[in-house]
Design a binder for these strands. Structure first.
Lengths: 195, 195
DNA sequence: CTGTCCATGTAAGGCGTTACATGATTGT
DNA sequence: ACAATCATGTAACGCCTTACATGGACAG
């Protein structure tokens, strides 16, 4: 379960409240690990019960207490253990592929409309990620990129590569449906082999 | 929820028992929509209650009755409606990216071992998909690919493209960690732009 | 004076997983 | 004799989502 470990990860950088954590998720990892508020509060309580985090309760007059969470030693150890352990093979679910797989039940026109709307979305995400990428380039203009920033850059680059690949696949699919060309694509094109 | 619609999809091709459905899932869509047995039985019961499928009960002496499910008219209509409707933006969870994002807490050596084991897995999946691809080429050798086979081919091609992209990203990441080169990669490389 | 931000949670439901349980038939 | 296949399900738990609920501070 990565949510627990993502929370441990953020807390390893600084102590935070549940509310702060939600903002951190939304600002950095939401593209690959969205988390909602009730989930974060519940998971913090679990981590607390397990002794991986502990909290300082800040009493405030007339308001709910504020709880600032920080890692315990066992929490840090667990985070490091998880980060260094290879992940068990994970299964992905792609509803778009389910739609394509059973597209025999719909017309070419209907399928094209589905594919085109997916393509528009993929291009929008790609544009958004590209904008963030350029922003980061300004922050670390030359060769002065520190190791700490590198990992965030890497996850961004994954997003760029993945959405670009999705876009290319969609575009190729659209063209072939339009041309009613049902032959398989050549392998080198698919896996992006260089000539 | 795509499981319901995947089941409707299979039943649109032929009536099946729960057991048959499980085999169909495992043989064709497991790469992008794994389903387990108890889930299938529960969902069939729900679909039945909703009137999207109905069943013929085949009584057998000394054994449990066999239930063969088939689509109803509303079931087919619902399948077609879902297949033609653009999907709501779906959020993905990538635990590997969580590991990379917080890799500041582990050493280069530990990170490299994680990345290399992911790369080995990605290459294994790519090899498996490539084998299936070649098998399909034999089945439809020339230009005689029918529309019905095309959609299955398309989903396979998606898998090839996605795992190839993952592998390229992992390899690039490994090389940069090894070289302690923390500069961002150039955009055209990332999105696979042609020169 | 209305809405957004800060900050906390609870409740209910959906989807998925793992493990358990049964029992005849077919293959080695 | 033993295992795999056919064929059905139940139980319990885990993770995530949506919606609901509270209430002060501050900005337009």
């Amino acid at each position: 379960m990565s949510l627990k470990h993502a929370i441990l990860g953020f807390l390893s950088l600084s102590p935070l409240t549940g509310y702060d954590l939600k903002k951190h998720f939304d600002q950095s990892v939401r593209h690959f690990w969205p988390a909602n508020q009730s989930q974060i509060y519940r998971t913090l309580a679990e981590l607390d019960a397990e002794g991986l985090v502990s909290k300082d309760v800040i009493a405030r007059e007339d308001r709910l207490d504020m709880k600032v969470y920080h890692l315990t030693e066992t929490g840090l150890a667990e985070l490091r253990r998880w980060l260094a352990a290879p992940l068990p093979m994970q299964e992905t679910r792609e509803p778009l592929l389910v739609q394509v797989f059973f597209a025999g039940q719909i017309t070419d026109a209907e399928l094209l409309s589905v594919l085109r709307s997916q393509l528009a979305e993929a291009e929008a995400v790609l544009a958004a990620l590209t904008a963030i990428y350029h922003q980061q380039l300004e922050g670390f203009p030359a060769l002065a990129a520190p190791r700490s920033a590198f990992f965030s850059t890497l996850t961004l680059e994954y997003g760029l590569a993945a959405y670009a690949a999705l876009g290319r696949w969609l575009l190729a699919a659209i063209r072939r449906v339009e041309a009613q060309d049902y032959a398989p694509a050549p392998l080198p094109d698919l896996i992006g082999a260089q000539a």
